[in-house]
Simulated assay, not measured.
Amino acid sequence: MAAPRNLIVSEIGKQKDEEDPIQQDSPSPSMGKKSLGFKSSRRWELGAAVGIILFFSIGLFCVYSTMPAAEFGRIRLPRSISDLRILKDHLTTYAEEHQAQFILGYCSAYIFMQTFMIPGTIFMSLLAGALFGVIRGLVLVVCNATTGASSCYFLSKLIGRPIVNWLWPEKLKYFQAEIAKRNDKLLNYMLFLRITPTLPNTFINLASAIVDVPFHIFFLATLVGLIPASYITVRAGLALGDLKSVKDLYDFKTLVVLFLIGSVSILPTILKKKRIYE
């Protein structure tokens, strides 16, 4: 008698499933809200990245389309201090006579290089100091570096995970673990990383989005944390004739100073840990 009874129960279950297939397969309201939120955030990130890329692309086009052919032919991306000296000599007159166009082109080129991780932004920082002086050069460099890093952050959210996993798999795991440990004092930790050469800036720009560092913390840490190193680089641009190589910028004394400044940013975290253990 048990077998027929089980058969009847299974048949009733089948009929129920056939009568109400929508209820069985339909997602819950909470799942729908999550998917909508995910889609909207992805659209916002894509829109921000595309907007920044369009900005400097249009800027580059406007500047280079109005630049005299003689000046255009002399512009090359510097790869050494000697290349930078030649570029500075060629651009001094043009930068003075067409300052607005030059600044627009400079900013567009800097953001482009920072966004797509093209080496050479340190030469652009030196050039800013040589052509604009310390104050204006520092403002230009910090603003461009922050904008380019932000653009790189958004692009990394879209396509960065496989790149970082391929280039720095172990470093990414370490960074993710450190971010998880310092969640309550994340801004202090990000400031420390920006001020000191503990991790490469390129890696920080790409990996921060992957390990879910909030953008407002990433942006503020970048804007403030890049000031000390940028000041050193821009100031060195005033004396290009005395500079032999990029390595001369960051000697032992300079690195010690940067680590001391960076230590101030994580001092609240260290003091908090001591109080907890006491």
Rank of each mutant, 00 (worst) to 15 (best):
F219G: 06
K244N: 13
I204P: 08
F218W: 09
A207W: 10
I232G: 02
N201K: 01
D212Q: 13
R194N: 12
A229T: 11
L240D: 08
V213N: 03
I195H: 10
V211S: 10
P228I: 01
S245L: 02
L238C: 00
V246F: 04
M190I: 04
P228C: 03
T198W: 04
M190N: 07
I195F: 12
S208M: 01
A239G: 09
V213F: 09
F219T: 08
F192H: 03
A239K: 02
R235F: 05
Y189V: 12
A236G: 00
N188M: 08
H216N: 13
L199R: 00
L240W: 13
L199C: 03
T198L: 14
A209L: 08
N205V: 14
I227M: 08
F203T: 00
T233C: 05
F215Q: 04
N201L: 04
P200G: 12
L206Y: 15
I195G: 07
H216C: 06
L220A: 15
D212A: 15
I210M: 11
R194F: 10
G241V: 00
K244C: 07
A239D: 15
T222I: 11
I217E: 13
T196P: 08
T222K: 03
I217Y: 14
P200F: 11
L243I: 09
V211G: 07
H216A: 09
L193E: 04
A209G: 15
P197M: 12
D212T: 12
K247I: 11
A239I: 01
I210H: 12
T202C: 05
P228H: 02
V211C: 14
A236V: 00
V211P: 11
L193H: 09
L238D: 00
A229Q: 08
L240C: 08
Y189Q: 09
L187P: 01
L199P: 01
M190G: 06
L223C: 11
T198R: 00
S208F: 04
L206C: 15
A209Q: 09
L226T: 06
F192L: 03
I210Q: 13
P228W: 02
A229R: 07
N201G: 13
F203I: 01
A236Q: 00
P197W: 12
M190A: 09
Y189H: 13
S245Q: 03
L191P: 02
A209V: 07
L223K: 07
F192A: 01
